[in-house]
């Protein structure tokens, strides 16, 4: 039972990691490093929370007095703004051939600053949005027969507690994994996307625009980060935006992406593993193994430590896309 609860919260915690890591997957597979996942997610979280709050606020309080659709509207706006940040990143790294890493760092700070600045100006509560009511958020969905099968041993609770009862974004995130795999490995678009990340000159020779292909990848990354952000403010118990609420999740997502060696299925596994580690860290202050005690801080640092180990190539080598980080200069 306890394990089931842990796995349940692992799925919840893995969702934003999964979405952001898939965002990074598209971007990096096309040759654009993106350490701005964190910033885009944070911005998405703020925009989603803010617009859902304003839309659902009574007209008398200065809101728009909507009664439904606030969460979807918030999600939509989060995607728009996150894509705008992506386009800045794309403009800097594709069009101007600037340093992609520096661009990502800048975007992270830009998001960290503006979310509080604008949040304070709009809501006057230290960068927080008002607490969102249930109908302003994505509510848990009970899958068919979840109550009926609850008493079936083993499988019943797994279905009704673990699989059922999440909000729509969790299911979107899980569905995004096979969809991503299909796009990247079974469509012409995906083939070209991977090709510009490995050998842009060859793609260019074939008469395909490297620039368009990379912009497309960066925009998809923006969409996914926006969804990940919206999940944080509209799909978790936080029920609104809190300053710095992404709290390094963008970097854990980056870690998951490397851990997964830039493969969609691996991303799912890595996100679930890191989500599970976080769930353990949240539930137990420290893990007593009898002989020695593992401090909670170690659990928190474990995803990062594992990533370094993976990067060091001690457990299979993680090879990034060959043209990653390099602006493409057409030969004249």
């Amino acid at each position: 039972m306890e394990l089931l609860q842990l796995m349940d919260s692992a799925v919840r915690l893995a969702t934003p990691l999964l979405l952001a890591a898939l965002a990074g997957l598209y971007s990096e597979r096309s040759g654009i490093f993106d350490i701005g996942l964190e910033g885009k997610m944070l911005m998405g979280a703020f925009v989603a929370g803010a617009f859902s709050a304003v839309a659902g606020m009574p007209v008398a309080d200065g809101g728009w007095g909507w009664t439904h659709g606030m969460a979807w509207f918030g999600l939509f706006m989060a995607i728009i703004v996150s894509v705008m940040l992506s386009l800045i990143h794309g403009f800097a790294s594709i069009t101007l051939r600037g340093n992609q890493l520096i661009s990502g760092v800048a975007i992270n700070f830009f998001a960290a600053g503006t979310t509080v600045l604008v949040g304070q100006e709009w809501f006057h509560s230290g960068g927080m949005t008002p607490t969102l009511k249930d109908n302003q958020r994505f509510e848990p969905i009970t899958l068919p027969f979840a109550d009926a099968v609850k008493d079936v041993p083993v499988l019943g609770p797994i279905y009704s507690d673990l699989i059922s009862g999440h909000n729509i974004i969790v299911y979107i995130a899980l569905a995004a994994v096979p969809v991503t795999w299909w796009i990247l490995f079974r469509t012409r678009f995906g083939l070209r996307l991977r090709a510009v990340g490995e050998n842009p000159a060859a793609v260019d020779t074939a008469g395909i625009s490297v620039i368009k292909q990379r912009y497309a990848a960066v925009i998809i990354a923006g969409v996914l980060c926006g969804v990940a952000g919206a999940y944080l403010s509209l799909g978790t118990s936080a029920a609104g935006f809190v300053k710095d609420m992404s709290a390094g999740k963008g970097f854990i997502a980056l870690a998951a992406l490397i851990f997964a060696k830039w493969q969609p299925r691996g991303v799912l596994m890595a996100a679930l593993l890191f989500g599970f580690l976080e769930a353990i860290g949240n539930k137990y202050q420290s893990v007593d193994l009898g002989l020695f005690v593992i401090p909670v801080q170690f659990m928190q640092a474990l995803p990062y430590i594992l990533t370094v180990v993976i990067l060091a190539g001690f457990i299979g080598k993680a090879v990034p896309p060959a043209a990653g980080g390099e602006p493409y200069v057409k030969e004249r």
């Binding site: 800097a92 101007l96 600037g98 661009s103 830009f110 600045l117």
Partner: peptide, 24 residues
């Protein structure tokens, strides 16, 4: 009444314009 985070925004813009968007 401008939050301290204004500095972070300026910092971000400086990094952006002197770093990644330098070619602009």
């Amino acid at each position: 009444g401008i939050p301290r985070e204004m500095i972070v925004v300026i910092q971000a813009l400086v990094i952006m314009f002197t770093g990644s968007l330098e070619n602009i």
